[in-house]
Amino acid sequence: MLLDKSEKIAVDSRTPKYLQVVNLILEDIEKGKLKIGDRIPSINETSFDFLLSRDTVEKAYNELRDRGIISSVRGKGFYISSTHMGHKVKVLLLFNKLSSYKKIIYYSIIETLGADATVDLQIHHYNRNLLEDLLESNIGNYNYYVLAPHFFNSLGHPETAYDLITRIPKDKLLIIDRAVKDHENEFPGVYQDFSKDIFEVLESGISHLRKYTRLILVFPKGDLYPVEIMDGFKRFCFFHDFKNLIVDGVDDDEQLDMGDCHIVLAETDLVNIVKKSREQMFKLGRDIGIISYNDTPLKEILAEGITTISTDFQKMGKTIAEQILGIEDRIPIKNQFRMTLRKSL
């Protein structure tokens, strides 16, 4: 009997073991083997029967309790309290802003979760005080919390807000879009590595960059972009001996210099550079180059095609949703970042 039960746990499955326990109990409910009021084995008994750690079984039981499937009676054990299989997982998204790219992530999460979850969205606007208020109002009300940990202090310097983040139960927290600095391996979720991403993606296009005499990163002040982008850019230029410059914008009365390649974060700067290149009769991809952050359909057709570097926001949302559903392992996952080469380079 012991062997039969333990064999039901697939060691090599991508589904975490605690979710396999959850699914086995739900399967018994669906088949009518367990009914409302029936007692299920204790955590210690299930741990022994399935050859699993006590922590794994406790996590499975907490999941079932959060779904309203089981309840505990002190001193007596765990009982089936509902056989309603349509109980939805509740998810709270805590985003730093609602940009067009965050909307792609949001809708990807919604689409992947489907009818299995209800999803609420709150914006913390990079503000740790607002995050604290949101946590005080919502901790305990959701099965999962998906946090974009982008924070800046009053001086505009990045901060981790680690003390606040750890208030969220660890088994219910997933990070999205960026890792928590100095705690990159502590929290599951999907993240960009902004410094490493720009370094590696520029290396992938280095044969196209070599025809330019200087690389210019246009990094706007006050827009709360990840400063790690500048770090990765500087490292790339140093290791590959590129003349380089970092500016905070492109002024209307400023002329472009032939031989420069601009790496642009803001759409307004992209438009300005395209307009100026036309005014100065420069051909994109020959006289000057442009690389724009974050791909959009418009950039595919603007000026015969703008080269972009971008993460896959739809994939990011899909992976987070699959971690919630237990399809994907709940571990830190670096999202793909790639260059889409077009005529502007």
Rank of each mutant, 00 (worst) to 15 (best):
F48C: 09
Y61N: 15
G37E: 01
G37A: 05
G86H: 07
S72C: 07
F48V: 04
D38F: 07
G86V: 06
S72H: 13
E58K: 11
N44T: 11
D55S: 15
N44C: 07
G68Y: 00
R54W: 12
S81G: 01
S47A: 14
N62W: 01
L52I: 05
L64I: 05
D38P: 11
S82M: 04
N44E: 14
Y79E: 13
V57T: 12
I69M: 00
G75N: 04
L51H: 14
S47P: 02
S53R: 05
L52C: 13
L52P: 02
V89E: 02
G75K: 07
E58R: 13
N62Y: 06
K59M: 15
E58S: 14
D38Q: 07
V57S: 14
S72W: 04
H87K: 09
L52F: 08
S71C: 15
V57M: 12
G68I: 00
S47D: 09
S47M: 05
K59P: 05
E63D: 01
Y61M: 11
R65M: 09
I69L: 01
K76V: 14
T83H: 05
T46K: 14
T56W: 06
D55H: 11
T56N: 12
R74K: 06
Y61H: 13
V73R: 10
T46N: 10
S72R: 11
S71V: 12
I80T: 04
E63V: 00
I80N: 11
S53H: 02
R39Y: 00
F48K: 12
K76Q: 07
S81C: 03
R39S: 08
P41C: 09
I40V: 15
S53M: 04
H87P: 00
R67N: 00
L51G: 08
F78W: 15
F50Q: 13
S72G: 10
I80F: 10
S53I: 11
T46E: 02
F50N: 13
R39I: 00
V73M: 09
E45I: 11
G37M: 02
F78T: 13
G68N: 04
L52W: 10
D38E: 09
D38C: 09
F50K: 09
T83M: 10
N44I: 08
S53N: 14
Y79L: 12
F48M: 10
L52S: 06
N44P: 02
G37N: 06
S82T: 03
G68V: 01
E63M: 00
G75L: 03
T83I: 13
T56A: 12
L52M: 11
G86E: 09
H87C: 07
R54K: 15
I70E: 06
S71P: 01
K76E: 10
V73C: 12
K88N: 10
Y79W: 14
R74D: 12
H84R: 00
I40K: 11
D55C: 10
S53E: 07
H84I: 02
I70P: 08
D38H: 14
I70M: 09
G37Q: 03
R39D: 01
N44K: 13
S72D: 14
S42P: 06
K88M: 09
T46M: 14
D49E: 08
I69V: 08
G77A: 08
